[in-house]
Amino acid sequence: MDNIFLFLREKAKKNPKSIILPEGEDKRIQEAVKFIVKEKMAKVILFDKKGNLGGLFKDVGNEDFLKIIELKDEVMERYANLYFELRKKKGISLDIARRIVRENPVFMAGLMVREKEADGFVAGACTSTSDVARAAIHCMKREGETPTVMGAFIILVPDCPYGENGLFVFADCGVIPLPTTEQLAEIAIEAADFTKDILGILPRVALLSYSTKGSSKGENIEKIIKALEIVKKKRRDILIDGEFQVDAAIVPEVAGIKSPHSPVAGKANVLIFPNLEAGNCGYKLVQRLAKARAVGPILLGLEKPASDLSRGCNVEDVIDAVAITVIRAQRSN
């Protein structure tokens, strides 16, 4: 699966969608935009806080694939009013709405997607995950009856025999600090569907823990077991099992000892972490120690696609997050 990101980029090019990048002042974003526009991967809407970005893209070509919006007062006022109307029942005043939208244009990006002025957004290069997630949750509609918004990562580990030849999906690594049993089940379902629909591979989902199939007892273990039961009841088509320690989930030799009869043990390619601490630490350890690619957190559970970026992202991460957001927009449209 070494070429998975090339595959996703090519898939995005087949039907480019309009994607907002609200952090136009970030140099990594600017470099990514040049590539995306040149390759006609997405129709980029770039926010310009200071009104000085136009000259950076004169030689890129493909003018129809780039729209720069200067964040003038009259523009911001319109979206501040939209945000106020959405959130006034939560106690937000118009003045507070103005401050939020002006200080964090990611909220304007979310509102534009809600208003169908764009198909999705990608942000986070210089905005915290909590702010990106809050903008998406407050401004965009949830998907169907799903009450949970979560963050998934695509992880590609070089020279790795585990998962899907080194390809994994990790969740939730970005949004929910302490998921309930029901939320844990929703995280597993959303991550499985994302793996199948966007990556085109059969998801084999492992619910992770410090225990493997009853080797330890405790309240947290019981929560995972109940989450497993919920998924199996709701979605019999999903191949899922747990609870597993990481080695039992992905290493066939260990699985043969700890859980020899599981259809998932030793073969998992979707790893569901018990809480945000574990998920966030887990993906960053793999990213830094194994020199893995980690793209995300991709926000799942929304009606329209949005993706966060780590503030430690590079240009390639931005390009690939946009490609994934385009493909998800292709499906949602």
Rank of each mutant, 00 (worst) to 15 (best):
F244S: 00
A206N: 03
A206F: 04
R98G: 13
G110H: 12
F65T: 11
K49A: 13
P179E: 06
Q30R: 14
I257S: 02
P22L: 10
L86M: 13
E164P: 04
K89W: 08
A109Y: 10
M1D: 11
P297Y: 01
L184Y: 00
I201H: 05
L82H: 13
F273W: 07
I155H: 12
G120W: 03
T181W: 00
Y79I: 11
N220A: 08
D73S: 15
S307Y: 01
V246E: 07
R331E: 08
D308I: 01
I221M: 12
R311L: 08
R78N: 12
G120S: 03
F5L: 14
G166Q: 14
F57R: 14
D308W: 03
K213C: 07
I4H: 04
E63M: 01
I187W: 04
S93L: 05
A80L: 11
E190P: 00
A294I: 06
F57D: 15
K213W: 06
A80R: 08
G214S: 11
A185W: 09
K11N: 09
P161S: 09
R78A: 11
R204T: 01
K27D: 15
K34R: 15
I4C: 05
D197T: 07
I324N: 00
L300E: 00
I96V: 13
N333C: 03
I189T: 03
F153P: 02
V295C: 05
K43R: 15
K40N: 15
E219H: 08
F153G: 02
L71T: 01
L167Q: 07
A185V: 07
H138N: 13
